[in-house]
Every structure is written in structure tokens, then in C-alpha cells.
Write a protein that binds this DNA or RNA. Sequence first.
DNA 1: AAATTAAATGTTATTTTGACACGAACAACC
DNA 2: GGTTGTTCGTGTCAAAATAACATTTAATTT
Lengths: 230, 230
Amino acid sequence: MTKYIKQTRILVAVDCIIFGFDGYDLKLLLIKRGFDPEKDKWSLMGGFVQSDENPEDAASRVLKQLTGLKNVYMEQMLVFGEPERDPIERTVSITYFALVDIKKYEKQLSDDYRAEWFSLKRVPKLIFDHDQMVDHAKQKLRYKAALHPILFELLPEKFTIPQIMTLYEQVYDVELDKRNFTRKLRSTELLIKQIDKDKENSKKGAFYYKLDKTTYKEKFTKFLNFVSNP
Amino acid sequence: MTKYIKQTRILVAVDCIIFGFDGYDLKLLLIKRGFDPEKDKWSLMGGFVQSDENPEDAASRVLKQLTGLKNVYMEQMLVFGEPERDPIERTVSITYFALVDIKKYEKQLSDDYRAEWFSLKRVPKLIFDHDQMVDHAKQKLRYKAALHPILFELLPEKFTIPQIMTLYEQVYDVELDKRNFTRKLRSTELLIKQIDKDKENSKKGAFYYKLDKTTYKEKFTKFLNFVSNP
DNA sequence: AAATTAAATGTTATTTTGACACGAACAACC
DNA sequence: GGTTGTTCGTGTCAAAATAACATTTAATTT
């Protein structure tokens, strides 16, 4: 047996939903397309899976190309495969959900597109079914972050408790209680208090913390219940 | 613009991981292949996505073909896309996770394969990366069932509390406390007590329950915490 | 020295969880 | 017709987790 006969071969693409956090707002990295199809419109960053490449590698490649970053937290999300979703030619798109430290992001200049961070509150209309992809990614972010410490992937190496709290508040669009939230965080034993403070946002300053990498790995897949009903 | 040039078109398949429950054991539906490649070996049921079909429809079609069932609980799972995973020709497989009421299953006779239910404790070696797919599906089942009432999809319309409990015990391979488990179940308000009893498994008989469809839909996406740390 | 601002922390009531034991229903048996 | 055996169904109490709530502290600004 050499080939599967009479079957349709389809283009397989990856699209990345890339989240960042600037300390105030949750952000999404989009590109203004300098190429067809849908030239001059906003879209997610994507690319075709190459013949020698698995989809994960394709997604990492695309992400690296856009952000300059490697080893980013990434997770496979839904496949979008409506026959007519790309009017040029049938394409099945595997979506990936990525969380990056926005401070490590380095704009990669390209003639093909222009990248920009958008507040999640003000996302422009996107091409094809990319809006749906973003909606789904938001849902997934809320779901996972309620249970697992993934939001730390959005923060720099050193961060403060008020920063994490703001992040959670942005993700869930709620106000949290400082005392209860801090207690919950402490109970996870994920944080190591530093001796220095962040003086950017207050006179008193807020202590920096770092992630305890060991506990982080150990507890990552456990249910930590950061938010009880998202 | 008419086509994407110089890109690789790839076969796109779906593979279904189909779970069932016979009252005692959690089961997996597999086929003995009567066709190439890997003729006479066990595998998941799958098929190629057709040119006019989206992947969900392909999965439903494949499932219907094997079980005779429509409107089955199904969820997209991981995509498996290693370039060499199928030695005949590169194929990207989208996996689907399905939960069926084993009593509604009707064997569909076919010359191409022979279907059989296997206890999850005794799954044979499968072709390609299908073992990995099954492992992943088991994990996913545990994860989701800990939070959401998906296991009811495995039960007949009328079921008893001891039956549900056995099911949870099988899924998590633990012994549960009858009193605590019942309390938890009752607190979800998902069940409606029937007047008749199941006398199959005891002299006293156990009351039948049905799902309250309305609450079920309402609460399906909420965190119900059936099992605290799977 | 006083005023201002955000950070840090503690207490109490409520809810949820986990551990544990006994009476009720019914068929089978003598 | 009463006794026995088996599974079903429920209640209590202690511990842990959560939600609601106010005050003190550190450091800059005036």
C-alpha cells in the first residue's frame, strides 16, 4: 500500500491567540496584514504547517517569528475546519493559545505585516473566523486560570501581589477582595517573597515575589481554585 | 488571488475515542481492522474528512457508522500531527472524545471491521499513536468529570445512585464514601427521583433517578466539584 | 511634623468537605 | 411466619475552605 486514494488533501494552518498583560490591561497581539488574502485587515498571526513540521512546531515558529520569543507557554486549542472558512482555498486551522511576558516581547520588523497589542476590551473586527477563535481563547483563559496558575506566565519574573490581583480582576472582570485573594495565593505556596519592593505604583512600595519553580511544576495540574465560579 | 502556492496539502482524519459503561466497567470501543494499513490490528475508529465536510461532521459520521447513534456527546480533543505518524502518507488526525449509552449502542455490521468493547483495564496495543490518544482521552475524561456532570452521558435515561457511584469509582479508580457522594449529588439538584426501583442488583432495590434536563444544561459549564483532586 | 496614599494583615460567620455507623427494605431460607 | 443476609439510604460532628469585613503600616509629599 502506497497512498490513500481518492481522499482530499487539505491545507493545514496554525493560528495563534497571543495574550499579554501590561500591568493594567489584558492584551491581544494582532497583525495588520500586508499580504493577501484580506490585505490591510487585522487578523491573528498564523502560518501553514510545513511538510516536515508538526503543528506544535509550526505554532512555535510562527510565534517566534512574530515575538522573537521561544519557550513560550502554549497550548493547543480548537481546530476550525468549516469547508468555506477561507474563501481562497479550503484550510483547516489549528488554534494555539499563547501567554507571553509582554516585557520580553520584541517587535520583529517585517514587510509582510505590522503587529500591535490591543486591549481585549477593544479588539477590532478580524478576518474569517478569527473573532470566534479569540472568543474561544478568552473562555479558555478564564477556565484554566480559575483552576491553574497559568496567569503567572503573563507576568515578569518579579511581580507584586497587587499586580497579580489586577491581572485576575482584568481576566474575570470582577473586583476581588485583597485579603481573601492574598490568603489564597499564600496557601498555594507558589510564591517566594523578595527583599526588594516595587516603588512604581505607591509610596509605600509593594514587595516583589518570584515563582517557586519547583512548586509551580508540581502543582500546575492540580486544582488550585483561584476563582470559584468564573 | 486564487490559491496558496507552494504549500503542502495534507490528509485530515478524525479518530474517535468512544467510552461506554456497562454497569461494572468503563469501556472503550475499538475496531479490528479488515483493511490496510495495519490490517488485522486493533485501532480507534476513524475516517478522512471529506471535501464538503467539517471535522465535527466527519466525527459524527464515523461515530454513526460504527454505533448507529446520532446526537452523541462529543468533544474535540487534541490534534495529532507528527509528520511520520502514519507511514503510508502524512495525515493529521483530529481526535474526538465520545460518551455513549452502551445500551443504545447497536452493532453495525460491516465487512471492513469488527467492533468490540474493551474494558479500559485491558486495552490491546493499538496502531500508530492511538495508544497516546486513548491515554489522553482518559486524562480528559477524569479532568472534565471531576468538574462537570459529563458521566451521566454514559448512563441510561433511568439510573440509580449506586450505579453512578460505581461509575465514578471506575473512572478514578478509588473507593468513594456513599454518604458524602450522595450528599454531593443531591446538592447539585441535577437528579429527579423516580417512584420505581431497580431490583437487579439488590433485594431492597435502589430508586431510579432521571436527569433534570433543565438544571443539567444550566449547570453543565459550572464547576460542580464532584471529585476534589483527580 | 502632618497629610496622603497604597500595602499588608487578622477575625468571625458560613459553607463545604471528610470521616464515620446504623436502621430500613426486601428476598431467600428455614 | 419468623429469621437471616444483603444492599440501600440517611445523619452527625470535626476540620477545612470561603466570604465578608476594618485597621495599621510604610513611605513619600507638603
